[in-house]
Amino acid sequence: MSWINLSALWKIVVFGLIAGAGLPALFAVGITSLARGPRAARTAGADSDVLVGGSVVGAAIAVLCFLIVLAAIGWGIYEVYQIGHPATHK
């Protein structure tokens, strides 16, 4: 038995970066592309609070991003549940 479990450590770093920084980045891509479009251009300026810009492509990309984020969270919770209940493993 070693004092430090290096394989667990690097897994936590790598998956931590993917899930902890990658998913919010994807969310950021989503809201940025959602805000793109003609409506955003009209009300441009520092105070514009337009979240939905009106571009169809932008909205489609945004929905795709949000779905990936949700799916990843769901899969992550499922994995944690599987690992955390070894007794119920088939």
Binding site: A28, I31, T32, D49
Partner: peptide, 17 residues
């Protein structure tokens, strides 16, 4: 990354999102 990706958004839209 979040600030980099959302740099084109206005401050208030970004805050809201």
């Amino acid at each position: 990354m979040l600030y980099r990706i959302s740099r084109n958004l206005s401050d208030s839209a970004r805050g809201h999102g």
